[in-house]
Design a protein around this nucleic acid. Structure first.
Lengths: 133, 133
DNA sequence: CTTGCATCTGTAGTCGCTACAGATGGTAGG
DNA sequence: CCTACCATCTGTAGCGACTACAGATGCAAG
């Protein structure tokens, strides 16, 4: 047993639900550290798995990768963690709410237009005419 | 007056709220036809203005550029316009609703975490711990 | 021996712009 | 007449977050 508890990238991918190419991409841009290798093959231990899982969860909340970097740093005990973490989360929340508001507006308009097109009586398509103004 | 009713790209930009670089980009990828030129300068007439306005409105509803192409074609009287227009709008609506649902989920989680971090009593940051699992 | 699998590196493509750099031509002011 | 400025031009590269190859390598099973 040279490195008993370690897994190859494929298994890390399965464990975390993260694409292999994405894992290598994260390594390239410094989100994940270059792991130990057995020959040419990357080998990940539990800390590697935990770190990637962290990244995935952060990404699921929509945090951009640059912010994920900050969150990783904070999670490793950098500075006034909770305070700063809350700050970036607030910014992210505001961003999410703004995007949702945009989508809401789109959904209303699209819903109306689909409806109007469904009840197709009048000459001309309501949808196409709305776009043509 | 060689071409009285035509305007330069800057004015088209102002009229439609569409960036000059974006207008040229649309031309490059075939969303807009190459306009008449006065010397080296693009000149747009009312049909150019209307076409770009159409594109902008479609983009505001989130239609991808490829679909905008289809919509333009339909608006110019291609085939069973209204039926097909409704179909693409339904797909777009479904997409918008799915994205909104994603954002909703994010907003709930982020809201909770921001809240939990605000009431900072316990040791450890709730947000960072949620990401660390 | 060969087939298949997992992995490797490196590069290019996606989408919808945006941001330059560097050239060109016309007008207005000194 | 010269200079400054303005709008426009072309062409290319960058963004964010991946994704999709192509082509090499090495190992184990049939």
């Amino acid at each position: 047993m040279t490195s008993s508890g370690t897994i190859p990238i494929g298994e890390l991918s399965r464990l975390t639900g993260c694409n292999i190419e994405t894992i290598r991409y994260y390594e390239r841009i410094g989100i994940l550290p270059a792991p130990v290798r057995r020959g040419r093959f990357r080998r990940y231990d539990t800390s590697g798995v935990r770190r990637l899982a962290f990244v995935r969860r952060a990404r699921e909340l929509g945090f951009p990768l640059d912010t994920v970097r900050t969150l990783l740093f904070l999670a490793e005990g950098g500075g006034h963690s909770c305070e700063q973490a809350r700050e970036v989360a607030e910014i992210q929340l505001a961003d999410v709410l703004a995007k949702r508001a945009d989508l809401d507006r789109m959904a209303v308009v699209l819903g109306d237009l689909v409806q109007a097109c469904g009840a197709g009586d009048a000459a001309g398509c309501p949808l196409l005419e709305a776009l043509s103004d």
